[in-house]
């Protein structure tokens, strides 16, 4: 029985990806930092799903899509500027406009970015993509600010700055690491081998302001809200799920959702300050 379900699911995946390709392409125009993340995930899934579904190449058209919007209620908090004078190099990278803290990025209409949305309770085996997820350290800030990898997926950490960064990850489940990157352009590759769905902090001890968050997912059904507050979780097998929206400052919320075959459902999360 189990075998059958996963088979069905795998075929669903393949088919929905095939169908969803056009949509991905049109979205790429928006050109957001987070968009690359979503796109990576999507293409990763595309590249590995056929392998998973190899024994049964039949196509099912059942996959659903979960979209949504994250809003912030109340007066939008002002983004604080970061004092980078401790490292002249960092300061020089930002010219006249100082860098901004990214702990609460709220748009003009209250759209909340950098919210990590994921399905909490989906069972099954989802092979990790082999394409790495990349975190860049650029201008003494992490890009992207919130991100996720799948269990076993390589994580590339790149230092684009001509200064020392150390990437100090503080996971609760995985083993923590702290690596120095004294050479510009250096890339350290890490693999996180345990699922840790609540994002953990990554910091740089040299530059106290640098913060990033990272989740380690056992499945590919997650997204990070963009600056317009939207998120999309494609290729979701039909079923009932708990969707969690997590924000570094405003905590996390849960919603139950049931999606039918081929359905596209919109969710909405609202955080309060």
């Amino acid at each position: 029985m189990k075998k059958f379900v996963s088979l069905l699911f795998a075929t669903t995946l393949v088919f929905s990806i095939a169908c969803g390709k056009g949509k991905e392409a049109s979205k790429e125009d928006q050109g957001e930092d987070d968009e690359t993340q979503t796109a990576t995930v999507a293409t990763n899934t595309a590249s590995t799903a056929p392998a998973a579904a190899a024994p049964a190449a039949a196509v099912s058209a059942d996959a659903a899509t979960l979209t949504g919007m994250v809003k912030f209620e109340g007066a939008a908090p002002k983004m604080a500027s970061i004092q980078m004078s401790a490292d002249p190099y960092c300061q020089s990278q930002h010219g006249s406009a100082p860098a901004m803290e990214e702990d609460a990025v709220v748009g003009s209409a209250g759209e909340l970015a950098n919210v990590f949305v994921y399905i909490k309770d989906i069972k099954g085996n989802f092979p990790a993509p082999t394409t790495p997820v990349t975190i860049e350290q650029k201008g003494c800030q992490y890009h992207p600010h919130v991100n996720a990898v799948m269990v076993g997926q390589p994580l590339d950490i790149k230092n684009d700055d001509n200064t020392l960064h150390n990437i100090h990850a503080l996971p609760a489940v995985n083993s923590q690491f702290n690596e120095g990157q004294p050479v510009q352009g250096m890339v350290s590759t890490k693999k996180l081998d345990k699922a840790e769905m609540t994002p953990f902090k990554i910091k740089c001890d040299v530059h106290g302001w640098m913060k990033s968050y990272m989740a380690v997912m056992p499945h590919p059904f997650y997204a990070v809200s963009q600056t317009n507050g939207t998120f999309t979780i494609p290729n979701l097998p039909p079923g009932s799920y708990t969707v969690v929206a997590w924000h570094e400052k405003y905590g996390q919320q849960e919603q139950k959702v049931t999606v039918g075959a081929k359905e596209s459902k919109a969710l909405s999360f609202t955080f309060k300050g």
Partner: peptide, 8 residues
């Protein structure tokens, strides 16, 4: 474990 000194 957890020291701020990075592993170089």
């Amino acid at each position: 474990n957890g020291t701020r000194m990075p592993t170089n």
